[in-house]
């Protein structure tokens, strides 16, 4: 295959475990096809490391098509790299110049402890969802498709919020390590649909409280999250979350426990 290739130098954060010291190490990435993805470039570097008896660089990944949210790290200060609306698994090497030096670092946030090298623990996001990111109905017979008409613009807006893949780039790009963009996307997605109305107040309060207690910082509306989000989640979600939270806090009723099922 006669594909064009480039040579790069990588400065990669190596850290054995959560409680170990980390440091940058330099690796050459030579003869990288410009058609390869960034993760394929790392595969190539890892194959060479393994052959030389060295420890390969650990990074999270699964779908490699921008839909699962597993991948993500900083490339020279940019979450998921320099190209807008793109996860690192969908970032292609044609976007880099021959001879470039790239610095690879894991997401940095108290709520995302490093597991190894470029891998972090994002289970704090799972716990925010567990706090209320769902609709409490048990599955029974499928309802008729047209029994709950939803205007197209509402459906589109809910869909745009639902596009969040939970990658954590928003947290990593925020100087306060705030999870406001993620949490607001999840709250908005349900708040925009009729099915989400019933538990709206309770859900908003619980998810926001969980977000705060997981150690994410406060949102100061600098917008770095929106700029780095691979799924173009909009800041208007945060405004909606704040509005919903205020409304919910004002009319919060004491909770009744009927035992949920």
């Amino acid at each position: 295959m006669s594909a064009k290739t480039i040579d790069l130098t990588l400065k990669v954060w190596r850290q054995k475990g959560q409680n170990s010291e980390g440091s940058f190490k330099e690796y050459p990435a030579k003869g990288v096809s410009v058609h390869a993805s960034f993760l394929e470039m790392l595969d190539q570097v890892n194959e060479a490391l393994i052959s030389q008896g060295q420890d390969p660089i650990a990074f999270d990944h699964d779908c490699r098509e921008g839909i699962c949210g597993s991948c993500g790290f900083m490339i020279s200060g940019n979450a998921h790299g320099p190209i807008k609306s793109t996860t690192v698994c969908q970032l292609h090497m044609r976007n880099f110049e021959n001879g470039e030096v790239l610095t690879l670092e894991p997401w940095r946030a108290t709520a995302f402890p490093v597991i190894k090298d470029l891998m972090v623990d994002r289970s704090a996001f799972d716990r925010i969802i567990t706090a209320g990111g769902y609709i409490s109905v048990n599955t029974g017979n499928a309802p008729d498709g047209n029994c709950l008409p939803i205007p197209k613009p509402d459906a589109d807006e809910a869909f745009a919020s639902a596009a969040c893949i939970g990658c954590g780039a928003c947290v990593a790009s925020c100087k306060n390590a705030s999870a406001a963009l993620f949490t607001s996307a999840k709250i908005s997605h349900l708040a925009l649909l009729p099915q989400g109305q019933i538990e709206k107040e309770k859900r908003t309060i619980k998810m926001v409280e969980k977000m705060d207690s997981e150690g994410f910082g406060a949102c100061t509306s600098t917008g770095a999250c929106e700029a780095s989000c691979p799924k173009d989640i909009s800041l208007t979600n945060i405004a909606r979350m704040n509005r919903e939270f205020l409304k919910a806090a004002l009319c919060e009723k004491p909770e009744h426990h009927h035992g949920e099922g």
Partner: peptide, 11 residues
């Protein structure tokens, strides 16, 4: 497929 280092295919 773009080449030898391809790791997966996109539908």
């Amino acid at each position: 497929v773009h080449g030898e280092n391809q790791s997966k295919l996109t539908l």
